[in-house]
Design a protein around this nucleic acid. Sequence first.
DNA 1: GGAGTTCGCATACC
DNA 2: ACAGGTATGCGAACTCC
Length: 820
Amino acid sequence: MQINFIPLNYDYLDIDGKAVARIFGRSADGKRVCILDSCDSFFWVIPKQGLSEKEIEKLGEKIKNVKTESAGREVYIERVELHKKNFLGKQVKALKVVASNQKDIHVIAEIVREFSGVEMKREIDIPYATRYITEKNVLPLTWHSVTGEVLNNSSEFRGIDSILDVDLVIKAEKISAAEEREFNPKVMAFDIEADELEIGRGNILMISMACGKFHKVLTWKKFSGEDYVETCKSEADMLEKFCEYVKKEKPDILTGYFSDGFDLPYLRARAEKNKMKLELGLDSSQPIFARGRITSAKIAGIAHIDLFRFIETAYSQYLQSETLSLDEVASELIGERKHEFKSHSKSEVKAHEWKDYFAYNLQDSVITEKLFHKLWPDLLEFTRVMQEPLFDVSRDGFAQHVENYIIHNLARFNEIAEHRPTHEQIQQRRARQKYEGAFVLQPKPSLYENLAVFDFTSLYPSLIVSFNLSLSTLLPKKEKDSFEIKDVEFEGKKQNYYFSKKPDFIPVLIGEIIKKRKECKKQYKDNPTPLLKARSNAFKILANAAYGYLGFFGARYYCVEAAASTAALGRKFIHEMIDKTNNAGLSVIYADTDGFAFLLNGKKEQEVLEFLKKLNSELPGMMELELEDFYKRGIFVTKRTGEFGAKKKYALLNKKNQMKIRGFETVRRDWCELAREVQNNVLDKILNEGNADSSLNYARGIINSLKKRQVEREKLMIRTQLKRNIEDYITEGPHVTVAKKMIAKGMPVDAGMLIEFYISEGKKGDLIRERAKMPDEPGEYDTDYYIEHQIIPAVENIFAVFGIAKEDLTEKKQKKLHEF
DNA sequence: GGAGTTCGCATACC
DNA sequence: ACAGGTATGCGAACTCC
């Protein structure tokens, strides 16, 4: 039989001592399919340098004869092959050791390690799914043609095909790439409501599901009146029905929002309490909770995607939302909000409130499903680019993405993968001193007119490519015809580092990533599809994270020397651009890392563009400078302490009258709304009007209305994130005190929460934290605190640019303008 | 016990 | 612990007299 098939989920089973890969997915005609296949389980042994071919062959023989037992299985070596491979810039002879079983690779490697003549073992830490994908080229979310035998209760696989809830189980004979076509997965979103937030402590009151037209809320509370609500006999019955509906709807993907951390653990806990099983897997298995920094819930055959995890890592940097709550994120991305539901207590929901509660619960699933479809192009393209299973890609961080991309492309370079750092290596790396990073030019505080900003496109990645910076190209000492990176500040002294000019895999791969991104952007211009945008975005993230990866303690290809050299070259190039710009009669007023702002000094925009062309013609390799924008006005202020200009704090106004505000309190979520609003309006007026006249009156008006308590309390709430557990704080700031109060009141408080509070009046000498109150706590806000600690700090430095002092803001009598 | 300084912490920029 | 370093500025905690 031959079918076209798209892989979604990968796992493997141990059948009669052999690993069998299970690839779940859809066929082109919409059937749910499981492909059974296998690939070699192996690792590499790199013999000691200087061993003759004969001695290596002898070592191979010795390895071939390894036999032992593990977990009741016979462990043996299937075969040993000698290959010519590359490893970190060197050609090596390596032994490919094919093991009887994936699970025994570690056991065998431990034995082999002791053999004389063994220099190192590698790739024992490649997961089976990764190995299968690279070996067989069966790429996730990419269409394939599969030829094989349809299994029907086959004894060969101990009948596993008969227990799988799929339309077809195929034992693969041949799998090859097929023509690309559209794929729209069937997605079910779900959400639970419980009467206690602590996992497992309370009851699950209801479970909602949304899957296309299928909308359902399950509950065991007696209720009638809404078609979509189904009343179950008990909590246990509800859990069972949930599994049944998942089975009936046959989704490819089950999605939730924070479902790794809340919904699925809660479901598991309640299932345990009710002494029943949560049989969601296509083999009727329960979700498996993989322990990592954050636990991930995996369901056999169905891709469980926690959208919160994906948004947190891959998407949050592009969002305006100040929290990553479902409500805020959905509102920004799909323009829909959650329903409101506020009950005094979830354990005492009043009779007339249930209807709203069910509607609220359903809406959460409905918007989660919509959010999923909005993010699907990114999930799809990220998966295709990184080549890891969707489940993993949706949870991986930047470093993992980079590493996955590298590992899935090593075969082209005939390269053996470096191992993950050991615990000791990680500790050492973490303990190292910081190296010197980017250059930031201190601006002179002032209001400027007619500016432009130039930026390097992908500065760091293009430096890594242009100067071949990586672990495998780093030279122990100077060689002729190598790249010399001078004066790299690291460990307290200036050092020189040398990198080979022979291109090797990491810089080559990063070069490809930059090129591919450019191609995507170009294609997108002609044909703006969400998929092209998402693909371009995947390459952008890879390029941006590549530099951070070099200096990341958990990286296989960790290389501080390369990271520090990248930053040093970045400094060199931005300095060169600044000098050339100043020498051309333009005045650079500010710079940060890879871009700088300068005054036109009467020059025409056309002249500036020509100057840009000239700069570009003088840049080496793939380095490129571009115009970010022209600006009518820009303001730079002093630091709160001292006379010097503050870095990373400025506001610009372009020709379309759009403001670009960086670093100011306006863009910081830990300042109250009033302070942010006032500062934003002051900046707006100043940039548009070119002077501070009207904004001064405006600011004074606000201070006066605050004095008269005409400002509603809501605008004075300060929000600060609780970044850790209460007991881990050394010093107790106001938000920690408020969090303690909340705990005392029995409110749910977790690390990661935004704590909201206001500052109330108090006795003289009271600490601020002693006056911090929860939003609904009775009290009067302290007008002095808000004037002196919120409003004035937000605008003082801006007015200082115009010679207006703090006293001029608070004086009761307004001065006439000419007095300034 | 008050003034000045350092430190811890949150958040931003690139 | 889960990409890097650079930077501001608050409020608490410390130092010093």
